[in-house]
Design a protein around this nucleic acid. Structure first.
Lengths: 408, 408
DNA sequence: AGCATATTGTTCGCACTCGGAACAAAAGGC
DNA sequence: GCCTTTTGTTCCGAGTGCGAACAATATGCT
């Protein structure tokens, strides 16, 4: 029951019905491939005649192709249809504090090439360097002129509409225009997005069996900070100022531990990797410099190691991990009470110890959730796909092909 | 950029384009009435021929009517079109702890009749009594057989799809089916919804100039508890278990004051009328019975009186009101960080003292909001329309006439 | 081998849609 | 009285889904 926005609507033309049905057909083929025209017609509840025309148009536009002939118990054998994906390439990049990742993949997220190097922090040099690597990668992979776009993922707040990076503390970037500069330097259409939201997009568009997945969910990545992406009705929620989903800094405890953002008691200050390690080492957060986590990293001791110690019988490590888990649950309770999503996906180093943390996490959740049904909200550790952020960057480019047409 | 749900989609038929454009036309007429066919055609960017057909069909369906002839500087004078509203009646009821309200109004929310009486708490007797009053009201108003539906608003969690009231502590109702019983007793189609969400619906569908209003907003009503409705993209967010929007019980302070829900530190426990009065009278919340608020009511001293005292120079009253305002701002900060709505509407007794509370409220908001832009999120005290909950109940029935058709 | 049956995929007429142009109707200015 | 302007209607054309008939292709039975 959506209200029509009378200041921004889309009148239906003669071609609107076709447009709608073509998109539906494309998505059904994507999720049930290989599939015949007749089967498609049955799934859409239209005649085979209509399905045939839709398929013809999708083939002409290069979105699908005819494959082998299938088997049938009786009657004429069907010709199978497939979505054209393996030769439709996109570029994806992920800028992090330590490293920058660049991947060439197809629109279903299958990797063709990958390159990793130390992050360049100066925006101008960053763009120049990245553009050069892009050109080289496209040349080596013989993909010049055959790349449909470039998705860039950044740890920070991003205005996806204008492509400006509003604030990325880990990189020291503030109000930097990366999209247009990168587009000019590479000749590609560039999309920029925040890391947490990108992961949610990857989950929505690229996960296997995504058709059967929920259309309203929250994706939570707990690592240096807490990255969150909120998808409602198959649509990423970005918000008026592009900050929607910033659950990391909601307070659990106004007088609680100091957060890197300068405030006290943020959820992030209770559950980030730094918070978990601090519990183990007895660090005093309010006296730590913002770079302490990277010091710990340099000492090459991360949450993954802490989980390993907890697993091998270190009671103090187990205690630290489970304490974090309880606070994770308490924060999730607010998310459940407020957004009441179909599913919550969890990611981050600490989820490697899911068997250790599930019980205290669910206890924390149950402690503050309002109904029994809500306490049973499915929690799923994000499937172990590699590079969810890069896949999200790819989804930025792939999604428009498959998305519902804008209507009414 | 919405993903098509392949398990629940709507194929376009021959009539889909017409359906879409008819709805757009209806909404444009509603928001710009009186309006001519030619003007409608210009606003829709279609030819006058198409607009003429759409208008003809809307007239045949009884949704609009032709009114007077307008004036024009030159040329043939236009015939004005209006949405038919004044003779399309709906019933709206609002059940509260003290009183139950029943209103007969038209689909634009204009009141025709109103009745108020002491709430009956036994569900069976409640339904029987309410149905009798409905019949009488329809008879007196000569509206029998001319009422398009019945919207019921309840203080508690409601499964809008099945019409079951899951939990309404103020009424002592738990898992009660009211909709079907009420539908059987009155012969009307009945819709049930939670109070906070109903207010949001009223704001979305019935406010004057709603066409110019935001399509993503949060409506917050602070009174006995905190009622919230969240509208995203012109659509009310209800959630998997129909609890979405329960911001009242997010923690500000895990060790904070005890809440009526049994937990500690909920936002509601900091800002409800009971919390505000407790600050003034020095009550100890953890020792209060759940009915303390009603005791205060019986003493006929409410937050409205507290605001009056604050205004007349009672420093302690002013302090209590402003302390609540700061906590309201702190909670709003989480809402802004998480949903980042276009606008936040505020309602409740304490907003009567908006000039007193705006400054500490905005200070609390700024304290925890992540960007300057977000701190500037428009806060608007809900326009002083009477009975927002009853108007919300009416909107439950009126909305389907104007909502966007389901497509793709 | 010949025929019935079953299934896939195509083709055609029909009713419906928007889009554009021509038209009639109604008003004011000269 | 005629021109100009604006509104509202009518018509035909091109594009749509829908149903039925059709051709193509396979299997099973006699």
């Amino acid at each position: 029951m959506r209200k029509i926005n009378t200041r921004d609507f889309q009148v239906a033309t003669r071609g609107t019905s076709r447009e709608i049905n073509r998109r539906i057909a494309l998505n059904l083929i994507r999720e049930h491939q290989p599939i015949s025209r007749a089967d498609l017609a049955r799934r859409m509840s239209v005649t085979r005649g209509v399905a045939g025309v839709l398929v013809q148009e999708l083939i002409e536009r290069g979105l699908i192709y005819e494959g082998a002939t299938g088997e049938a118990a009786r009657g004429r054998k069907p010709t199978f249809l497939h979505v054209r994906a393996h030769d439709r390439l996109v570029l994806a990049a992920d800028v992090r504090f330590s490293k920058t990742y660049l991947m060439l993949c197809d629109i279903s997220g299958r990797q063709h090439a990958l390159e990793v190097w130390d992050t360049v922090f100066d925006p101008a040099r960053f763009v120049k360097d990245l553009a050069a690597r892009v050109r080289r990668m496209l040349k080596i992979q013989r993909a010049e002129g055959n790349c449909e776009g470039f998705g860039l993922v950044v740890p920070g707040m991003v205005d996806h509409r204008t492509g400006r990076i509003l604030n990325a503390p880990a990189l020291g970037w503030r109000d930097v225009d990366v999209r247009d500069r990168l587009a000019a330097a590479t000749g590609l259409s560039v999309q920029v997005e925040n890391a947490g939201r990108a992961c949610a997009l990857a989950q929505l568009w690229l996960e296997h069996g995504a058709g059967a997945g929920p259309h309203s969910f929250v994706y939570i990545n707990v690592s240096d900070g807490v990255g969150v992406g909120y998808v409602h009705n198959g649509e990423l929620v970005r918000g008026r100022d592009h900050i929607a989903g910033e659950f990391g800094h909601m307070p659990l405890d106004l007088g609680g531990p100091r957060c890197l953002c300068g405030r006290q008691g943020c959820w992030e200050a209770h559950v980030s990797n730094l918070a978990t390690l601090s519990r183990y080492f007895g660090w005093n957060l309010s006296k730590l410099s913002p770079n302490s986590l990277h010091e710990a990293e340099r000492k090459s001791f991360a949450v993954t190691d802490l989980v390993a110690r907890a697993r091998s019988g270190d009671a103090k490590a187990l205690g630290a991990v489970r304490a974090t888990a309880r606070f994770m649950g308490l924060g999730l309770a607010t998310i459940v009470n407020v957004l009441n999503p179909d599913t919550i996906y969890l990611a981050g180093e600490i989820t490697a110890g899911w068997d250790l943390i599930e019980e205290p996490l669910r206890a924390g959740l149950a402690e503050r959730v309002l109904t029994d049904a809500a306490a049973r909200t499915p929690l799923r550790v994000s499937s172990a796909h590699e590079y969810p952020r890069l896949r999200g960057a790819a989804a930025l480019i792939a999604a428009p092909t498959f998305a519902a047409p804008r209507v009414a």
